Simulated assay, not measured.
Amino acid sequence: MAHFDQREFDAMEAYLDPDGTWLRADGAVDGIAGLRELAKAMPADIRVRHVLSNFRMTRRDASHVTVRSYVTVYREQSNCDTSPACFSAPHLVGRYTDELVLTDGAWRITHKSVIRDFVRD
C-alpha cells in the first residue's frame, strides 16, 4: 500500500499476482491490467495514506498464506496550499485480508479484500 500511496504503481505490480483480484469498496481491480486502469483513473489532487497494523498471518501450506490486518485510510483532496495536507478525520477504518501465494520464489498477493468497519460521513 505504500507504493499505492506514493503512486508507484509499477513497483506495486511486483507484489501482485498477474491474475489476482483486489476487492475494493468501489469495485474489483482484476490483475495487473486492472491496477493500471485504476492508476490512470486516480485523480491527481487526491492524497492517500494507508496505515496498517495488527498483522496476523496464517500459513495454509508451503505456498499459501493469509494475512489479516487493520487499516486506517486517510484520503483528502489536496485543497490546502501547505504541506502537510489538511484533513478532518480518517476516511475509513477497517480490516484487510490478503491471500498470498509463493510463485517463482516470491510472495505475491492473489486476493485482497477490505471490510469497512467505520467510514467518514
Results as ranks from 00 to 15, higher is better:
residue 23 L to D: 02
residue 59 R to T: 13
residue 86 C to E: 09
residue 54 N to W: 00
residue 30 D to Q: 15
residue 69 S to Y: 00
residue 114 V to H: 07
residue 116 R to T: 04
residue 70 Y to R: 12
residue 100 L to F: 03
residue 78 S to E: 14
residue 102 L to F: 14
residue 113 S to C: 07
residue 74 Y to R: 02
residue 62 A to H: 11
residue 39 A to R: 08
residue 47 R to T: 03
residue 75 R to C: 00
residue 13 E to V: 11
residue 22 W to N: 05
residue 47 R to V: 04
residue 87 F to L: 04
residue 44 A to G: 06
residue 105 G to M: 06
residue 33 A to N: 09
residue 97 T to F: 03
residue 81 D to H: 14
residue 116 R to D: 04
residue 56 R to K: 13
residue 71 V to N: 12
residue 121 D to R: 12
residue 112 K to N: 09
residue 21 T to G: 10
residue 29 V to R: 08
residue 21 T to V: 11
residue 83 S to C: 10
residue 50 H to C: 00
residue 111 H to E: 08
residue 78 S to A: 15
residue 19 D to P: 08
residue 108 R to I: 07
residue 88 S to I: 11
residue 41 A to C: 06
residue 36 R to V: 02
residue 7 R to F: 03
residue 28 A to R: 11
residue 66 T to Q: 15
residue 57 M to R: 13
residue 88 S to G: 10
residue 61 D to S: 05
residue 75 R to Y: 01
residue 55 F to G: 14
residue 41 A to L: 11
residue 73 V to N: 04
residue 21 T to R: 07
residue 48 V to G: 01
residue 25 A to R: 06
residue 91 H to W: 03
residue 65 V to L: 13
residue 77 Q to R: 11
residue 30 D to A: 10
residue 57 M to N: 10
residue 10 D to G: 08
residue 97 T to A: 08
residue 28 A to Q: 12
residue 66 T to M: 15
residue 76 E to K: 05
residue 58 T to P: 06
residue 31 G to I: 05
residue 39 A to K: 05
residue 66 T to R: 15
residue 6 Q to G: 03
residue 39 A to P: 04
residue 11 A to I: 09
residue 32 I to A: 09
residue 72 T to E: 06
residue 78 S to M: 15
residue 22 W to Q: 03
residue 11 A to K: 09
residue 83 S to G: 09
residue 56 R to H: 12
residue 81 D to F: 08
residue 99 E to V: 11
residue 20 G to D: 02
